[in-house]
Design a protein around this nucleic acid. Structure first.
Lengths: 230, 230
DNA sequence: CGGTGTTTTGACGTCGGTCAATATGTGTGG
DNA sequence: CCACACATATTGACCGACGTCAAAACACCG
């Protein structure tokens, strides 16, 4: 049993604006859950009974396209909250959430979450800013998807993954993704993705070993991402 | 001089949750503005001093891509509010807003808007749901952009435009867009867009005359949009 | 060791982007 | 109302990027 008061989630999410009483209330009513690598947290179209605070682990949020592929929309990891949007909108989820590695999360029932939105203006302001921020990011993605060629998007994705999740001791990206996952981020066929990764490798910008990816020439990679390189 | 109490904007936007006193407060402090067709309402990166309620007209919100094209992210028209996101997030705008036809809008200074978010939980809940909804739409767009071929996206766009803005007396789409604008919605070269529009025409699904577009076979057009046709 | 799944590579065709030429507007001032 | 300039729409030719199919190389695991 752990206490919300000390949880890392407070450091990053809007939950930091809750006062001690509100936190205690939540702490009493949360349940701790674990998910294994690959396990489904919730599916597209489900009605959620609450939100999930990620204490440890990374999940991918995907949406099924009519062509049968699962487009990855974003990742939610340590210290972030899953299911905010659908809970706030009081709608079924728009996205499917899958654990990318073993995860520990806390489940907070809907009413405790919504209660605080109504009662604590600082908290609801924080939620508003959260959504506003996500919306901005989504708009950026739309532009990238529709205007940039795949190679740029791959370069961008690698840099973005470094930014969000960092590196391990050996300098590889901490997050391990299959080629299929990467191609589902950039929205392309797996083979195209593989091919472009290997040209990046030949050009000396990255090196790979299985699912491990290391950035070896960050500066040029950034230029590729911006489309300034050839 | 008009009064917020009777404004059409109240029918559609979150402003409907405001009570008479709050509305009067806003009504006193708003200013009425007009914009001509093609005029800039605000540019990407500007700090807004408030939000704009659209009484009449349609505007396009675009974002400049690194390849120099303005991707159209969405439209904001009668009864909707412009600049919500940046005002709430207290950030410079992410998007550029341009009037597509002559517009009448009311400008509401930031503090009156934010004040009500803090004081009126119903209003802030409404704003949250607004943003949540926009976020869902944006996610849908991401999937479409990354997974569907241009012809499907064009078909979808036409149907979407009919849905959002309706038809005139003759049965043409009420909203008039240049081919360039259409191609900036679907994220493609203008010529490709033109070519695909003319194949849709040859297939008898739409007919065009200048900037006027009429849907002549909605059912098949929907099938094309879903990718079920050939 | 053979299965099962993922990564890599090759060959090929098509979609969509670019450049250029031609039509068709559309608005301006005379 | 015409003539001109200029923007937008349309079409053609060409080519590169990307998707698809299929096979080979490699991993992982029993």
């Amino acid at each position: 049993m752990s206490f919300c008061e000390k949880c890392i989630v407070r450091k990053f999410s809007g939950l930091k604006t809750l006062n001690p009483e509100e936190l205690e209330q939540i702490s009493k009513n949360k349940t701790s859950l674990s998910f294994q690598k690959g396990e489904l947290i919730f599916d597209e179209g489900e009605y959620l009974k609450g939100v999930y605070c990620v204490r440890h682990g990374i999940s991918k949020l995907t949406k099924l396209s009519s062509n049968g592929k699962d487009q990855i929309i974003k990742f939610v990891s340590n210290g972030e909250v899953l299911g905010q949007r659908s809970t706030i909108a009081n709608e079924p989820t728009n996205l499917k959430a899958i654990a990318l590695n073993d995860m520990e999360v806390c489940f907070i029932p809907k009413n405790y979450f919504l209660e605080n939105i109504k009662k604590n203006p600082r908290f609801s302001m924080e939620m508003l800013q959260d959504l506003a921020h996500e919306l901005k990011e989504a708009d950026d993605v739309i532009v990238n998807m529709s205007q940039k060629p795949v190679k740029q998007r791959i370069a961008e994705t690698i840099l973005h993954l470094e930014n969000s999740f960092g590196l391990d001791e050996e300098g590889f990206l901490l997050i391990r993704l299959s080629r299929e996952d990467i191609s589902n981020i950039v929205g392309t066929a797996t083979e195209s993705c593989i091919r472009l990764l290997s040209t990046l490798k030949k050009e000396g910008l990255i090196s790979t070993s299985g699912k491990r990816i290391m950035i070896t020439d960050k500066e040029t990679l950034q230029q590729v991402a911006e489309g300034l390189h050839h």
